[in-house]
Amino acid sequence: MTATIDTSTGPSTDGAARPLPRRRRIPTRVITGIAVTYLVLVILALIYIYPFLISISGSFKTDADATQNPLSLLPQTWSFTAYQRLFTEVPLPLWTFNSAFVTVCVTAGRVFFDSLAGYALARLRFRGRAFVFASLIAVMAVPNVVLLIPRFLVLKQLGLYDSYAGMIIPLIIDAAGIFIMKQFFESIPVSVEEAARIDGAGVFRTFWQIVLPMARPALITLFILSFQGSWNEFAHFIISRQSQSLNTLTTGVATLTSGQLGSGNQYPLQLGAAVLMSIPVAVLFFIFQRRIMSTSEGGDKG
């Protein structure tokens, strides 16, 4: 712990506000304060993490053990029945495939089309650009839940209901992603592109070879958001399909949890499914942890 405080604070703070003689001493109340802070934070962290830990252990328990000892971190006897059933009785592999397929298509589509549109809005001058941008902002304001029934109606009308296309295409562009990309492209100096254009590169080549590689941070952000969003998407897959064979992990696990497969009290089975479906986003989270919590550097300097 550092006993001194950094005196070189920004110019906005009034140095005279702090009396000098007290600077090197930490009053006891500050120390108790720190101890209390640690205690509170540790308890809170436990509350946030423990549910996940007992879910993992719960998935290795027997049905009876999970019901009787919900709090224990170690199963009385290790049972892999839940996982066995998930891969035999329950079509978990199919759900996983569907989720993966949809997620890959949506993520690739969003990253590509959102950056195209974002680039056009940031850099290319064309008639109607202001109008398109204003409409985009308006679209962002429409809540997703409001769109459920309307989207079903259109999918049905277009003959896309209950197909991969109907599950994927409506999600393949999102206004918020276009917005993120536009903001980022605007922060890149124009001079780079101008040089490329003068050298004779076309608009698409300038975008693809020069600007897009520079937008890596924004692309990664968009990738994380799209992946997480489409992997965890639920409501849209409820209204865009009805076939069992098109169940994703979210809609499939929902049938397990809501007891539609006669699994009302089989907690290990449900927990196992919940644990498995969380693995990809958890992995993504830990890979990109630094970027997701981009704020973590600033505070650690001291």
């Binding site: 962290a45 996940f52 007992i54 719960g58 979210t250 696990v253 927990l271 919940a274 479906m277 958890a282």
Partner: peptide, 29 residues
Amino acid sequence: FRTSFYFPSVTSSIAITTIFLFLFTSSGA
């Protein structure tokens, strides 16, 4: 601490609701 507090936001609503259904049963955690 940051990871602990942020992690629940990463998981899907389906997984987390399933977990909560388990935590809040009458004889639950």
